[in-house]
Design a protein around this nucleic acid. Structure first.
Length: 596
RNA sequence: GGUCCCGUAGCUCAGCUGGAUAGAGCAACAGCCUUCUAAGCUGUGGGCCAUUGGUUCGAAUCCAAUCGGGAUCACCA
């Protein structure tokens, strides 16, 4: 039952009758009663006191007295200033719980039941360096949002557009050629993406050195950046690549394959996956015809120097080049082409989501605006899932300067911390080695994923490498622990929970009632989280649920409860708590252990 | 300079479609394991919600200005 709707349907006629108003149930806004007051839902009566021509207290009393007579589910009320606190009956909550308990997928709509198909792009790494903490946020966010959208019955297609070509890729290639001495992942024992990343840094070092030499010879900084021999060689390499030079292509393929092998390992550790992977080397020429189309429609115009532009100044944006004067593509050219191509390839998709950092907010504004001007009505269905940067105490991470938190190091470090803490606790004595390894990974990744996903994606977040990610308090392992505790009780119970029935005459303990009320909210939480593309809502909800369980656990015994019907009910209650914890953590890509 | 985002406890974050005395966690301090897993529970201290105005019965929340931080405005991606 939708409780708010039920209550406002009761309330609306009462208010109309009492005060001569003409409200509809939709106008009646209820909120959950704050913990420190008695009640389940609260109506704020301030808006009615003018019509009621009396005090807020009296207004609440008048409404409350009528309300309580209207339906037996409404048990009692109290008034504090302008707040009418309404309590629903014990039986009402019990019967709500019965339907929650019965539904193994409570809150989760059947897959593909909405009829909506959504393509979600995320990850989209460059193949010149390993993944760092910023990419980790992108990957976890994209994966989580996709999972959450699935709970709403949407068909979600996860895609990865790999940035595998361009001048930055050539930088690693040229540095390897110059300084690598044939080093390979096999010969060096270095993970492929890290090896390529090493040469990306090498390039930057050599480049800077050359610039300094040139500047010492009296050349300006800008000129030096252009004249640096290694930069010239890199540009030549890019031209060769575009001309399909066999030797260059072979080098490019070899180094990229190293990177893919490396990424594969990292993706597996992160637990993310894709339905399809695109490569920019296949798509970078897309979009040129679109430019011609826009030109003939008069949406774009050619400047004197031959470049093609669009004027967006009337839309609060600037003039934007969509094709260079030499006829080559810019970044937005291929994004236009890729978008149009995707809607051709998947004519049934209703929405396209791009998981990309907020430093590209402007780019996506321009992209969607241009698509709209070109007459593609689905442009309105394109959404930039923009997330804040991960910053270190000293500021932004920079790959070239090596001031990044490496993804693999971070993951391995978390798993190690989990191992240390677990071993210290002495709780894994009867685990075999495989089970131990799996548990350490589950806990370590749970801590890392939760740490990242609990913060609002839109906001930038701070990570201090000196302070390791916590395993206590508002953390992933806290939630995992609550789950493991429940599973431990259910194991000790050692009977099927299937046949247990929930009695109608149980007087609910405060914590039991809170747990039911909280579980009742789960579908709305998923919906809200999906609508706002915000996994943090699910994360924080799950933490609150786990905390509530811990409080319950502390105050109420399950297995040692003498009253059989209360005991059965509690078994059902914790079972459904565990299920919701598991399902919501799954939305975040976090596993929950059976024991820890 | 234009545009956009952000300033909440010492630190990391919730709360922001306006509502009651602004919440968690970490860190600090004090309690709770012969009782279903103490990665837990309970309590204490800690706040001019950046500042100033405005709208409102009511503002951390909405509006404006100011100060502070960041991003972006490439024929880079």
């Amino acid at each position: 039952m939708n409780i708010e709707l039920f209550l406002s349907t009761q309330l609306s006629p009462i208010i109309n009758e009492l005060f001569g108003l003409s409200s509809t149930p939709n106008d009646i806004i209820l909120q959950k009663t704050k913990k420190e007051f008695e009640g389940d839902y609260t109506l704020v009566t301030f808006p009615f006191i003018k019509a009621a021509k009396t005090t807020p207290e009296k207004t609440g009393e008048l409404i409350g007295e009528k309300l309580i007579l209207s339906n037996s589910l409404i048990e009692k009320f109290n008034v504090v200033k302008g707040f009418l606190n309404i309590s629903l009956s014990n039986n009402f909550w019990l019967s709500e719980f019965k339907s929650i308990s019965k539904d193994a997928n409570y809150g989760i709509k059947p897959y593909k039941s909405s009829g909506k198909q959504i393509m979600l792009e995320y990850s989209s790494p460059n193949t010149n360096k390993p993944l760092h903490l910023g990419h980790v946020r992108n990957n976890l966010l994209g994966f989580a949002v996709a999972s959450i959208l699935k709970t709403q019955g949407h068909d979600v297609i996860k895609v990865n557009l790999v940035n595998d070509r361009g001048i930055h890729i050539c930088k690693s290639m040229i540095a390897w050629k110059l300084f690598g001495n044939g080093e390979t992942p096999l010969s060096s024992g270095i993970k492929g993406d890290h090896l390529v990343g090493k040469y990306y840094v090498e390039f930057d070092k050599a480049f800077k050195k050359e610039i300094q030499t040139l500047i010492a010879n009296g050349i300006s900084k800008e000129e030096a950046e252009r004249q640096a021999p290694i930069m010239i060689k890199t540009q030549e390499m890019l031209l060769k690549w575009e001309a399909n030079d066999p030797e260059t292509i072979a080098l490019w393929k070899m180094m990229n394959s190293w990177v893919y092998d490396g990424f594969q390992v990292s993706y597996k550790k992160l637990g993310v996956d894709f339905d399809s992977i695109y490569y920019e080397s296949n798509t970078y020429l897309l979009g040129k015809e679109i430019v011609q189309e826009g030109l003939s429609k008069g949406i774009f115009y050619k400047k004197d120097n031959g470049s093609i532009c669009i004027d967006l100044t009337n839309d609060g944006l600037d003039e934007k080049v969509v094709l260079r004067s030499d006829g080559t593509s810019v970044y937005i050219t291929q994004d236009l082409g890729t978008a149009i191509e995707r809607f051709k390839e998947f004519p049934t998709i209703n929405q396209m989501i791009y998981t990309v950092g907020n430093e590209q907010d402007y780019h996506f504004k321009v992209l969607f605006k241009i698509l709209s001007k070109l007459g593609y009505d689905w442009a309105d269905e394109c959404y930039h899932l923009s997330y804040g940067m991960v910053e270190l105490p000293e500021g932004k991470m920079k790959s070239r300067e090596g001031t990044v938190v490496d993804a693999d190091d971070l993951i391995d470090g978390m798993v190690f911390t989990a191992k240390e803490t677990t071993e210290e606790s002495g709780k894994v004595a009867n685990f075999n080695d495989d089970e131990k390894e799996e548990l350490y990974h589950t806990i370590g990744m749970g801590a890392l994923k939760y740490f990242i996903l609990k913060v609002d994606p839109k906001k930038k977040m701070l990570f201090d490498p000196k302070e390791s990610i916590d395993l206590h308090g508002n953390t992933g392992p806290f939630i995992q622990y609550a789950h493991a505790r429940i599973k431990s009780i259910l194991r000790d119970f050692n009977k099927s929970t299937e046949s247990l029935t929930i009695s109608d005459d149980i007087l609910l303990h405060d914590k039991e009632k809170e747990l039911i009320k909280f579980q009742y909210d789960f579908p709305k939480i998923l919906e809200e989280s999906a609508n706002s593309f915000n996994p943090a809502i699910v994360a924080n909800y799950t933490y609150e649920l786990a905390k509530l369980f811990n409080q319950f656990y502390n105050e109420c015994s399950v297995l040692k409860e003498d009253n059989q019907s209360i005991k059965d009910f509690r078994i059902k209650l914790i079972e459904s708590t565990a299920r919701i914890i598991k399902n919501s953590m799954e939305c975040l890509g976090i596993k929950v252990p059976e024991r820890m």
